[in-house]
Each structure stands twice: as C-alpha cells, then as structure tokens.
Amino acid sequence: MRIPLKITFLLLLMLLLKGQVCLAAEVILVVHKDNRLSGITRRAAELIFLSRKTEWTQGEHIHVVVNDDPEVYDTFCRDILHKTPLQYLIYRKKMLFTGSGIPPLTMNNDAEVKAFIAATNDSIGFMRRDSLDSRVKELVVQ
C-alpha cells in the first residue's frame, strides 16, 4: 500500500515536533545562603551565565552551575538569557571547542543544583521555585 506523500510529510513533521511542547516552570536564581546579595539585574545574570562576568562585586570568583532539567533549562534560557535552549547549548560548546574557556558545570536536576550551591560559597544556579528551601537563598532578578 502506498502512503500518500502529504501524509508521509505530516508524519515526519509530527516526529520532528514530538516532545517540543512543554509546560513552563517558575524558575528562580539561587546562591549560597551566605551570599550578601539579595537581587541582581537580568543583564548581570546573563553575563554571569555567559561567563563574561566571573567575579562578584567583592572580587570572589563566581562558581556557576547550569541545571540540565529540560523544563527548567528551557524556561531559564528564554526568561533570563532571552535565548533559545539550543543557542545557549551551542554558546557553551563554543567555549570548549574554540579554546576560549571552560563552560559552567552542568547538573541534572534541582536536587543536584541545590546540593552544589549549598556546599559551594560564591556559587550561583537556577531551579524551580518549588524546590527552594533553607539550604540556599533566592537571588531576585530585578
């Protein structure tokens, strides 16, 4: 039985689009609980996650961690970086493969990010608001 070309095309398109629709999570920036900052501009956050700003105002090195949970990552890229997830992924790979730097650490989910932030002074990451607890501190994007 021959499958009409249009149906084949639509099936292919559905396959390509499969898994692209996701619900937006409420994503917040988090820092070590001893961090004296309570807020940050979106621009400054963008520069930190693009590795262009690597020092807090007091001069301490910023330890950045990227949350690879697809839903959280997608929301963070679009809301904070104003980039597509693929653009930010390629940006980080460019650092590695062109010799211009080492990209931020990547962790799989909120729990890992939270554990890293709680254990590392001067660190910053992002996760779902629902995952926030007293081990880390929210950094409000102003």
């Binding site: 390629i90 790979k93 460019k94 493969f97 062109t98 010799g99 211009s100």
Partner: peptide, 22 residues
C-alpha cells in the same frame, strides 16, 4: 592573556570553523 596556538578572531565565526555542530 593566552599564549600558544591561538585561533584567529577575524569575523564572528572564524574561531569555530573546525566544529561543524557549532
């Protein structure tokens, strides 16, 4: 400063020519 064999930063994309997926 970087020393060694360093990519030539002419244009936006010269430094990434060897990595097709970029």
């Amino acid at each position: 400063a970087r020393l060694g064999k360093v990519k030539i930063p002419v244009g936006l994309y010269n430094t990434e020519r060897d990595s097709d997926f970029l």
